[in-house]
Simulated assay, not measured.
Amino acid sequence: METTAREFNQRSSQILAAAARGETVTVTKNGVAVARVVPISEDDVPPYPTEPMGEIDLPDLGLPDLGDDEIEETLRGTGS
């Protein structure tokens, strides 16, 4: 199946449903293929958890604790 970027924008739900049914959909822009929506299989799902893993213990680096205002002041003028 092939669709334009505009059609994909307008009909994304139907296009994703087609992929869920096993169809591969090529998205074109100005007649040039720019993306492909493909169905995923169980093999494509990573065998490890991808959900948040809870609290993370960070090592103490001996750095001073800065408040929001101090951080903003430090970053001001650095292009951030």
Rank of each mutant, 00 (worst) to 15 (best):
V37W: 02
E73R: 09
L63T: 06
A33N: 08
P59E: 13
N9V: 03
L66M: 13
T3S: 12
F8R: 00
P46L: 01
R6Q: 15
E2S: 13
K29L: 11
I40M: 11
V34G: 08
E23N: 01
A19M: 01
Q14W: 02
A33R: 12
E73T: 12
S80N: 09
D43I: 05
A20P: 00
G77V: 01
V38Q: 11
N9K: 15
T50K: 00
G54Q: 03
A33F: 08
V27K: 03
S41Y: 02
N9P: 00
T24N: 02
L58W: 09
Q14H: 10
E7M: 08
S80W: 15
T4M: 13
P49E: 05
V25G: 04
L63I: 04
V32W: 06
G54F: 09
G67E: 05
L66E: 12
M53F: 10
D69W: 03
T50L: 14
A17R: 13
N9I: 03
T26W: 05
G62S: 12
I71V: 14
R36N: 11
T3Q: 08
L75G: 03
S13C: 01
E42F: 03
G77T: 10
I15G: 04
P47W: 02
P49M: 06
M53A: 11
K29N: 11
G31C: 06
V38A: 12
E55F: 09
E51N: 13
L16H: 08
V34P: 05
S12R: 14
T74F: 05
G22C: 08
L66C: 03
I71D: 00
V37C: 06
D68Y: 10
G79I: 04
G67W: 00
R6L: 14
D68A: 04
D68E: 11
T4P: 09
I15F: 14
G31F: 07
S12K: 12
L63M: 07
S41K: 06
K29C: 13
T26M: 06
E73H: 06
A18S: 11
I71Y: 02
